[in-house]
Design a protein around this nucleic acid. Structure first.
Length: 413
RNA sequence: GCCGGGGUGGGGUAGCGGUUAUCCUGUAGCCCUGUGGAGGCUAUGAUUCGAGUUCGAUUCUCGAUCCCGGCCCCA
């Protein structure tokens, strides 16, 4: 009986990895140009890091374990908390804003479905130490650019929690949290019931329900009509103005609420088509987590991209490399080695290690889709020239090694 | 945790109570010992696991497991 791979995990074959690395490279390029620097945190952390952030209930979805020293640990389910922990531990004295990014695997014990795995990759960004519309807009614009290079036309929804929080101010924070969760789930009935239950003032109910239904171009002015000139609306308006300057298209959506207390103002989500139920490819916002982990009162803004979900719809094929297969005979096996070594400075080179016949080596070159074959037999050794064969056209010519190198490095294809 | 649909060689499939378990493809080798892609031949290799029904199970029943899709959740 063979051993199966664990549920919800995947093996990535060379073809898969070529595509994944290609996307990864594109994303790295973008964040690099925006001045973000990579960090890596441990694959596992203290369980408490995540229960502090997300509550005890998350343990049900974690790959947690007790190590041999009796410590409660877990494979990381996300990277915002680890990066914040890292900041508190060793980055508090660095010049701000800190612009960090990460690309790592995460683990959640959940039922797999389309776009959802137990091991998955997140490409994320955290902008630490700056808050306000400028930071909010930069982060959103960056996310938008990243999806752009992935060839994804995302549907960007932007909301501003500060506005809802303003409305809910009179309520206790626990009640606020519950309401935010209901709003986020778009559970209108549950929301109604709960407002009734906590005896929310009629005026507040009306404002809340009206507010979360606002979308589209006039949402801001309607919100202002509804709530008056509160500073949160002005801040949100600034974010939108900046997004316009960045050339980012968006939909205003006060219905994005996020049920967690540490989100402070701006929140956004990006959805993509063709992904079934798990269509969200990006989510983020501004938040305050650093105090929770024992650091100062430092604001942050960030987002995570669902790398695997993007891969599902990523249709850019990487350019193939100009692989060359050296064809030898029994007598030229050894002379071929320095040739291979030289060519390996430029392109992927295959040298027979199956003790194959001349013909079989050529056949192999064909089967792996090699672009060129370099024939090195007695004839070539006698002539001092190599036979350079284009496997696509079938044409071949006698060339020196230097001429061959020029062919490999000169042409674009 | 819940609901539906599925698991037959590496990949794609046929069979649906008794078959040497079909075919395609892949891989390796040969026909063809300096020229690949075609063709032929040979080799390779599978009924997800466990219980039950039956004289007999790949086929029927139940359970488990994994995959696919959905619910819940989504930090």
């Amino acid at each position: 009986m063979t051993i199966q791979r664990p549920r919800g995990t995947r093996d990535f074959l060379p073809q898969d990895m070529a595509r994944r690395r290609h996307l990864e490279d594109q994303l790295r390029k973008v964040v690099g140009r925006w001045g973000y620097q990579e960090v890596v945190t441990p694959t596992f952390e203290d369980l408490e890091l995540f229960t502090m952030k997300s509550g005890e209930a998350v343990v049900g979805e974690l790959y947690n374990f007790t190590d041999k020293g009796g410590r409660e640990m877990t494979l990381r389910p996300e990277l915002t908390a680890p990066v914040m922990r890292m900041f508190v531990n060793e980055m508090q004295a660095l010049p701000r804003p800190l612009k960090l990014f990460y690309f790592e695997n995460c683990f959640r014990y959940e039922r797999p479905q389309k776009g959802r795995f137990r091991e998955f990759w997140q490409f994320g960004v955290e902008l630490i130490g700056s808050e306000g519309p400028d930071a909010d807009a930069e982060v959103i614009a960056l996310a938008n650019t990243m999806l752009g290079v992935a060839g994804i036309q995302g549907d960007l929804h932007v909301g501003y929690l500060g506005i809802i929080r303003h409305v809910l101010q009179p309520l206790e924070s626990e009640q606020q949290g519950k309401i935010m969760r209901l709003v986020d789930k778009k559970d209108d009935k549950g929301l109604d019931d709960f407002l009734e239950e906590v005896n929310a003032p009629i005026d507040m109910r009306m404002k809340l329900l009206r507010l979360i239904s606002l979308t589209g171009g006039e949402a801001i002015s309607k919100a202002r009509d509804l709530l008056g000139p509160i500073p949160e609306i002005d801040a949100f308006q600034q974010v939108l103005t900046l997004l316009d300057a960045y050339g980012v298209g968006y939909t205003i959506d006060f219905g994005i609420a996020r049920g967690l207390d540490y989100y402070t103002g701006m929140v956004f989500e990006i959805y993509a088509k063709g992904l079934g139920a798990q269509k969200q490819v990006c989510g983020g916002g501004s938040y305050k987590l650093i105090q929770l982990f024992g650091g100062g009162d430092v604001p942050s803004t960030g987002f995570g991209l669902g790398f695997d979900r993007i891969m599902e719809i990523y249709d850019i094929e990487p350019v193939l490399q100009k692989t060359i297969v050296i064809i030898t005979t029994e007598s030229t096996r050894i002379t071929a080695i320095p040739v291979a070594t030289k060519l390996r400075e430029y392109v992927p080179v295959y040298l027979d290690i199956m003790n194959r016949t001349f013909k079989a080596q050529l056949s192999y070159a064909n089967n792996i889709g090699a672009r060129y074959a370099l024939i090195l037999g007695d004839r070539e050794v006698a002539q001092g020239l190599f036979t350079f064969k284009d496997m696509e056209s079938g044409t071949q010519e006698s060339l020196t090694l230097n001429e061959i190198i020029l062919r490999l490095t000169g042409e674009s294809n």
